[in-house]
């Protein structure tokens, strides 16, 4: 009996210890240096980005994680707006596929949008954005779905005939292998011919993140080099 009580006390102790550790090191900014090494951000930028992350992740539930509602709220200042693109972007950020974004997922994904990120990273991300079914190629039906959804979201009106003709012309240009789909190589070539297709893939804000969130210096754990 005494041994049993001793066991329970030990278990409680371990649990309390775990809770204490969690409180001392809230999940999120565990090792800014690792993230800085593996992304285009400096340590200071990672820490400033964490200030943004804390703001967004506490908007609805203050749990140190960003759910889809908080992501939409930050993007559009309303969680009511329906956006196929915002959904796609969230899903691509959510590399653990658990419906929520941790800081690491958030920072790694935003790194692609940094002005200094490699163009190939931006091209690959944009390809994934349009590859709705994640089959490794963009199908005509996926393009149509995106065109129809984005036109509806923006209140633009184009007849089905016009949409079909735009998609026909797009595939004539992009689908150089004539197999009815756009693969990564064809997408790469199309983007080279039309660099404007990547215009939403660069966020100038990321260059000034440390001045936008100067409060990171109060929480900084590491001296930047």
């Amino acid at each position: 009996m005494l041994q049993c009580l001793e066991g329970v006390r030990h278990l409680c102790g371990v649990l309390l210890k775990c809770c204490h550790i969690d409180l001392k090191h809230p999940k999120g900014l565990e090792d800014p240096e690792v993230l800085a090494r593996e992304t285009v951000f400096s340590v200071s930028e990672v820490e400033a980005l964490y200030e943004l992350f804390k703001k967004i992740s506490s908007a609805v539930i203050d749990d140190g994680l960003i759910n889809k509602e908080e992501f939409q709220l930050a993007l559009f200042k309303t969680s009511k707006k329906e956006s196929l693109f915002a959904d796609r972007v969230f899903d691509l950020f959510d590399t653990k596929h658990n419906g929520i974004l941790g800081f690491e997922e958030f920072a790694r994904a935003l790194s692609v949008f940094h002005p200094s990120a490699a163009p190939d990273e931006k091209i690959n991300f944009s390809f994934q954005l349009y590859d709705l079914k994640q089959q490794g190629f963009i199908e005509r039906q996926e393009v149509k779905q995106m065109v129809v959804a984005t036109l509806a979201e923006s209140g633009m009106n184009l007849s089905d005939e016009v949409i079909e003709s735009i998609i026909d012309k797009t595939f004539e240009e992009a689908d150089t292998k004539h197999d009815g789909k756009i693969d990564k190589e064809e997408w790469h070539n199309l983007v080279q011919r039309h660099p404007s297709l990547l215009k939403n893939m660069t966020l100038q804000y990321l260059k000034d993140i440390t001045t936008t969130f100067p409060s990171f210096v109060f929480h900084s754990q590491v001296a930047d080099t």
Binding site: I56, L75, T150, L151, E153, V162, I166, S196, L197
Partner: peptide, 29 residues
């Protein structure tokens, strides 16, 4: 160019123009 009519755009340019895919909202108050 910004004044390109929708008929001259390819589907992806049209999507880019019509969609609200602009993550800068994340940084704005």
């Amino acid at each position: 160019p910004g004044d390109k009519s929708t008929h001259q755009m390819n589907a992806f340019q049209l999507i880019g123009m019509a969609s609200s895919l602009d993550l800068s909202g994340l940084f704005e108050e």
